[in-house]
Simulated scan of single mutants.
Amino acid sequence: MGAVTESNEAASDATRSRILDAADALLQRRGVRGMTVAELARRSGLSRPTIYRYWNDADDVIRAALLRRVVVILGHFPRPASSRRELVDDVLRFISRFRTDAVYARLLADEPESFTRYTLQRVGSSQRVILDWLARAIASAQDDHSVRRGDPQEISVMLLLIAQSAVLSHGTVSELIDEAGWERELRAALDGHLRP
């Protein structure tokens, strides 16, 4: 019985991955606009009822695909930072990977309103995963006494807001500040927020 269950779970995971791979391809090519369950079915080679078995609509698939991309980016940070300097470095490295991610870069460049809708208008699964990662690192760096005291979860919320607004506004201010200056000032803002 156990082998059958494991086989069913593996098949289910493979189907989910196939749908999310199709969503990734569509998001990279066309962005959020025009993403439908019919398009996902066509791209994945699966039926619409199969997609509806896992998600309520295309919007849910998009959110799941974006969450998967965030989890992959966070996979490059296997252990939490243990000092303020490491934490700021990790946040800047995360931002760099995020900005160069094929899907997120496309949304930022061509559909900032979609980026805002899926990442800023409400705290979704992607933000919660990032907040948990930040809170663990903040707690670790507090033990090092290089990050100020306070609730790590609350500090992580403001840290995320600083980073998100900097990423979203980057294109707007690119004529006013070059890349090196932008990163330097963002580093100072992040460091200042965390400093004891």
Rank of each mutant, 00 (worst) to 15 (best):
S44D: 09
L46H: 07
S47M: 02
S47K: 08
P49R: 11
P49T: 07
T50G: 04
Y52W: 11
Y52F: 14
Y52S: 05
N56P: 13
D57P: 10
A58F: 06
D59F: 13
D60T: 14
D60P: 03
V61R: 12
V61P: 08
V61D: 08
R63V: 11
R63T: 14
A65V: 12
A65Q: 13
A65G: 12
L66V: 09
R68P: 06
R68Q: 15
R68W: 11
R69Y: 13
R69N: 09
V70T: 08
V70R: 05
V71M: 01
V71C: 01
V72T: 15
L74G: 13
G75D: 14
P78A: 13
P78N: 13
P78T: 14
R79Q: 15
R79C: 11
A81G: 12
S82H: 15
R84L: 15
E86Y: 09
D89I: 07
D89V: 09
D90Y: 08
V91G: 00
R93M: 11
R93K: 14
F94M: 08
F94V: 01
F98K: 10
R99V: 09
V103Y: 08
V103F: 08
V103A: 08
L107R: 01
L107E: 01
L107S: 04
A109F: 02
A109K: 06
D110G: 05
E111G: 05
P112G: 05
S114P: 06
S114E: 07
F115V: 00
F115A: 03
Y118S: 12
T119Y: 14
R122C: 09
G124E: 04
G124Q: 00
G124I: 00
S126C: 06
V129W: 04
V129C: 02
I130F: 00
L131F: 01
D132T: 02
D132Q: 00
W133R: 03
W133M: 01
A137D: 10
I138K: 11
A141W: 12
Q142S: 13
D144W: 11
H145E: 14
S146T: 15
R148H: 12
G150F: 05
D151L: 02
E154G: 06
E154S: 08
S156Q: 04
V157G: 03
V157W: 04
V157L: 08
M158E: 05
L159W: 02
L160Q: 02
I162N: 01
I162V: 12
I162F: 00
A166R: 06
V167H: 02
L168S: 01
L168H: 03
L168A: 02
H170A: 06
G171R: 13
T172R: 00
V173R: 03
V173I: 07
V173H: 04
S174H: 12
E175K: 09
E179K: 11
E183D: 14
E183N: 15
E183H: 12
E183W: 11
R184I: 01
R184C: 02
R184V: 10
R184H: 15
R187M: 02
